[in-house]
């Protein structure tokens, strides 16, 4: 017998590749350290998640909603530091390397 797929309507869920949770687990545990909203949600000033409210990766390996981080950096109290480790914030070049993917 030969099985031919003519048309498959599937449901999938997207998630950010934060480089941390690579396994198949629920992968929903990670939240933005600033607003405490999951990465796949959106920051408090956005209504649409995803491309409209992207993430920003730091050299320090911390990841935030971009809008949250920019707002944080814009405050004097931030001293341009990562809010998690108080190291100077340096935005990481996003690695387009999926060899370590599943």
């Amino acid at each position: 017998m030969k099985v031919t797929v003519k048309n498959w309507h599937a449901i999938a869920q997207w998630r950010w590749d934060t480089g941390t949770n690579e396994d198949e687990g629920d992968g929903e545990g990670d939240v933005c350290g600033i607003c405490r909203v999951p990465y796949e949600g959106c920051c408090p000033s956005c209504k649409m998640p995803g491309d409209d409210c992207p993430l920003i990766w730091g050299e320090c390996s911390h990841v935030f909603h971009m809008h949250c981080l920019l707002q944080w950096i814009g405050t004097a109290a931030s001293k341009q530091q990562c809010p998690m480790d108080r190291r100077p914030w340096v935005t990481a070049e996003r690695k387009v390397n999926h060899s370590n993917g599943r």
Binding site: M1, K2, V3, T4, V5, K6, N7, W8, H9, A10, I11, A12, Q13, W14, R15, W16, D17, E24, G27, G50, D51, P54, L55, R94, V96, H98, G101
Partner: peptide, 26 residues
């Protein structure tokens, strides 16, 4: 293909949802 298009994102399939049209050649 998705990840090529959206490099920051991954897909997670919800496998029991949806439907599929098959043709079986017996």
């Amino acid at each position: 293909q998705y990840t090529t298009f959206k490099p920051d994102k991954r897909l997670r399939w919800l496998p029991q949802l949806g439907s599929i049209k098959l043709e079986l050649t017996l």
